[in-house]
């Protein structure tokens, strides 16, 4: 008598492993065109040394973690106070604070046909929360600004395409902590990982311009920023053009500097300061 569920065929012990091997081979062969299509050169930057495959599998996790780490910089800057918790706690405790938020809250409450009345127990819990969490927005003491730096580094380690973390981190290193060499190293790493990140090129240009007075290198990075394919608003563009103009001027290339400022004027025709600077440089040239 046949066993139920055996299909009535001959039992071949090697069928299952053979099928599995065939399927795995198919998957491996499919991987080659899929990988070539899916991962561009820019996205193949490894998050951890030698961990390219892991970073591809866990890409979303790393990127999300990087965003959380980026928020930490803001939290550290405000001594542990996050904007949301600050408003909410103050409002709940009825202790000063954000009136606009309070009005919105009241409006929403009445919209649903009821008002959120706070009894004594509510107020006690609110006061507890107020005392247990950081509650007064205060900036980090200037002597402890170095405490922000691990979060910039960790953000870019988890997401090497986090352009803002590179640019802002580079600024803090160079201008707040006086670590110019470290800032340049960090920003160069950012440019390597984000060739089109004009904010990083601009920042490194500013470091060369303001800290090292190396106008030739500054010029190179400002020009690189202007060549970026990334979307750039006119304020950013005008800012870079101004720095580029001064880089030319300090190297003695007054005509090039004037041309740059004319581009600024093209973006903002009402800019009186640009008109004055162009006029002054034209005079100097003559």
């Amino acid at each position: 008598m046949k066993k139920l569920g055996t299909g009535g065929g001959k039992h071949r012990p090697y069928n299952v492993p053979l099928c599995l091997c065939a399927l795995l081979l198919c998957v491996l062969l499919l991987q080659i065109p899929l990988q070539t299509y899916h991962y561009s050169e820019a996205s193949s930057v490894s998050v951890i040394p030698g961990g390219e495959i892991i970073s591809k599998i866990l890409g979303g996790v790393f990127s999300g973690s990087a965003d959380l780490l980026w928020l930490k910089t803001d939290e550290y800057l405000h001594k542990g106070v996050t904007e949301h918790s600050h408003c909410h706690i103050l409002e709940e405790a009825g202790i000063g604070g954000h009136t606009q938020h309070k009005h919105e809250h009241e409006h929403k409450g009445t919209e649903h046909g009821h008002e959120l009345k706070h009894n004594r127990l509510d107020k006690l819990f609110a006061k507890l929360e107020y005392n247990l969490k950081p509650n007064i927005t205060e900036h980090l003491h200037s002597k402890r600004e170095d405490e922000l730096m691990p979060w910039f580094k960790l953000t870019t380690t988890f997401n090497p395409h986090h352009v803002r973390a590179y640019a802002v981190g580079g600024y803090w290193l160079a201008f707040r902590l006086g670590k110019t060499e470290e800032a340049i190293k960090f920003l160069k790493e950012g440019i390597k990982n984000n060739p089109d990140g004009y904010q990083i090129s601009t920042q490194i240009g500013i470091v060369y311009f303001s800290r090292l007075k190396d106008y030739k290198k500054a010029q190179y990075y400002f020009e690189k920023a202007l060549k970026s394919q990334a979307e750039m608003d006119e304020y950013d563009k005008a800012g870079i053009l101004r720095f580029l103009a001064f880089s030319y001027k300090f190297q003695g290339h007054t005509q090039k500097a004037i041309d740059c400022y004319k581009q600024v004027l093209g973006l903002f025709p009402e800019n009186k300061k640009a008109v004055q600077i162009i006029a002054r440089w034209e005079q100097e040239k003559d």
């Binding site: 006690l124 507890l128 247990l132 969490k133 950081p134």
Partner: peptide, 24 residues
């Protein structure tokens, strides 16, 4: 969250009032 003082510890806030600790 009433048992979590980690943010205040990290950012070196002054100690919380005694009544808060007693209530918790």
């Amino acid at each position: 969250d009433y048992f979590d003082l980690s943010k205040k510890i990290v950012h070196q806030w002054p100690p919380v009032p005694a009544w808060v600790i007693i209530t918790v």
